[in-house]
Amino acid sequence: MLAPNFHVNAPVPPDPVEKAPTYSPDEVPSCGGHGTLEILEVTRYLENHGVECCVVGISALMFYGAGRARDEWELCVPNDKVNEAVSLLTADSMASRIHAIPPIPIPQPSSLSHTYHRFKGRGVHFYFLIVPAYDAHIPSGPFRIQRSLNGVPYPTLPVLMQSFLDTNDDVSLCDCIDGSNMSEEWGIQHLKLDGTNDLEWTRKMNIAAAEASRGRGWMFVHYFPTSTISRREKWESRVRNKKERLGWTTPQGLFDTRFRLKGSPDPWTQKLISS
């Protein structure tokens, strides 16, 4: 007779196995985690090999004073230099510093970032994308550059602001206006305000977005805005409404814009660790 609590089909205890090895997390990048020195090294490497480049996207908005958080840097190169830039960045001479990784797996709103070449620092939590100049609506040949005091190249403020107008990127336009605290008169002097946004660019970008999603099984694609706007009216309304974008944490008595204290210096004239 079987003893009580004896189970004929009880599982055999597994043999002891060796514990999986543990790995140290990536190191924190330079400048308090911003990765400024890492992107500077990449830009200098490309420039020294004849590929012009400049930092765009969220990093450029931060450089001009917007309060944004950055997951990765966006490095703009001329369209006809994308393959050359990728070839240089995947060369053996850079293998100890960076390596290519898969693109972002899902589409991002009004962006083709999920189609771009993406890189990561070797053992460092530092990421960047290669963005074609056309996609960023940045004129190339040569780029008009404003360097940070650390030496990182960015588009000049007129070039960046114009790109937001021409692509009808309202969020970035407002962030750039509030970060730089530019006046209505500055826009009249430095921007092309006649006519409307660049709908031919929008059409081509939406075709590219649809093509990139073909056969991927994605439920949706965030297309670029197709509405027609007057560049002058857009500029005037967004500059004149700076005060309306202030919140309870940024009272008018202390702030000129939601990102700028009264009397504060222009951020791009300061040596900031984030740029």
Rank of each mutant, 00 (worst) to 15 (best):
Y23L: 15
S227E: 14
E233D: 15
A20K: 06
Q189S: 11
G179S: 01
P4R: 09
S113T: 15
A60N: 05
V171P: 08
A136V: 08
R118D: 10
D15L: 15
I101R: 04
M205W: 03
I58V: 13
D135W: 04
P102C: 08
A210I: 10
G215C: 01
A210H: 09
E72S: 13
P102Q: 01
K242I: 09
V124R: 07
G253A: 09
S110A: 11
P13S: 13
G35M: 03
P109T: 02
P155I: 03
Y223I: 12
P103N: 12
I101S: 01
I177N: 04
E27P: 12
I104M: 11
K243E: 13
F255P: 06
F6K: 05
V131I: 15
E185P: 00
P29A: 01
L40T: 04
E41L: 14
G195L: 00
R260F: 01
P14H: 08
M219I: 10
L254M: 13
G32H: 03
T156F: 01
E72Q: 00
R97M: 09
L261F: 06
E38S: 06
M1N: 09
F220K: 07
I106D: 15
P78Q: 08
Y23V: 13
K19P: 10
P4L: 15
D169Q: 03
K271F: 09
H99W: 14
I138M: 11
L149Q: 13
H49V: 00
V124K: 03
Q189P: 03
S93A: 11
L112K: 01
L160W: 08
K192W: 12
L149I: 02
Y134L: 13
L261I: 06
K192A: 04
E47I: 14
N197D: 08
W248K: 10
R144K: 15
R260D: 09
L191C: 04
Q146N: 09
I177E: 00
V159I: 08
K262S: 05
H222M: 11
L160I: 07
C76S: 01
Y45C: 07
G50R: 05
D92N: 06
I229K: 04
E47C: 10
R44F: 11
V159Y: 00
V159W: 01
T156S: 01
I130L: 13
D175F: 05
Y154S: 04
I145W: 02
G65R: 02
G215W: 14
P265T: 03
G121P: 07
